[in-house]
């Protein structure tokens, strides 16, 4: 009986973190775990729901999306070779693309035939006040117009008019507004990237507005 419990424990120990790593494993695996009498639940693991990459910038044959049985997969350039020497970041491709462009380390074309065509850059910052305690948002047109054309965002995604655009993080996370690109191709939305947009400190005398429920709290 002792051997039996030991075996189950070992299996659960090996199996659990592997299941957790899987992107498709939506169901918390703890449901299936039943600890034997006198044993502590093996559900008490670290990072139960953390989806973390084992390795960054993997080569196509190992990345799980490209088929290693396809001969051409082995001809494709591994990202790490291309990223060598580029400034790094903590998220996305782990490359700071805007800095790489500004430092002249990459020369992406603005016209597909003519490498000499210069982009139409507009240097205009838009400040958006935020209800919550996080710093206010500063939207810089400059890096955006270095990569994109006005028509990419205006007027379909953002109406080019003051106060005309309702933006919130829920919409962005679901892929609307800024989320059309951010969180898909341009830098993603993570704890480490909040301050890239939320970059203007609140006024010194700013206090977070108290919620109704707190003001009317009878046990206060």
């Amino acid at each position: 009986m002792k051997m039996n419990q030991f075996f189950l424990g070992v299996v659960a120990f090996i199996a659990l973190p592997m299941v957790v790593v899987q992107a498709e494993a939506a169901q918390p695996p703890m449901k299936e775990v039943k600890s034997a009498k006198g044993q502590v639940s093996s559900a008490n693991v670290f990072n139960r729901l953390l989806k973390k990459e084992k390795e960054r910038n993997m080569a196509p044959p190992e990345d799980g999306v490209h088929d290693p049985d396809n001969d051409n997969t082995h001809v494709l350039q591994p990202p790490r070779i291309a990223y060598d020497g580029l400034p790094t970041s903590d998220f996305g491709n782990y490359v700071d693309w805007v800095k790489a462009l500004n430092d002249g380390l990459i020369q992406p074309r603005y016209d597909r035939f003519d490498p000499t065509v210069e982009p139409l850059v507009m240097d205009l910052d838009i400040v958006r006040e935020v209800k919550a305690s996080v710093p206010d948002v500063v939207f810089p047109h400059k890096p955006h117009t270095q990569w994109l054309h006005c028509s990419n965002c205006h007027p379909k995604i953002f109406i080019p008019q003051r106060k005309a655009n309702v933006i919130n993080m829920s919409a962005i996370l679901l892929g609307q507004k800024c989320g059309v690109c951010h969180g898909k191709v341009s830098f993603p939305i993570t704890t480490k990237s909040c301050k890239k947009c939320h970059s203007k400190a609140k006024p010194k005398d700013w206090k977070p507005p108290q919620s109704e429920a707190s003001l009317k709290n009878p046990w206060r």
Binding site: M18, V19, Q22, E24, K51, M58, D63, V65, N93
Partner: peptide
């Protein structure tokens, strides 16, 4: 069986961001 299932189930893909 559970060990086998873990091995057979597809592992999380780790392709490059924005692929």
């Amino acid at each position: 069986l559970s060990m086998l299932a873990v091995l057979v189930l597809p592992q999380a893909a780790q392709a490059e961001y924005a692929d």
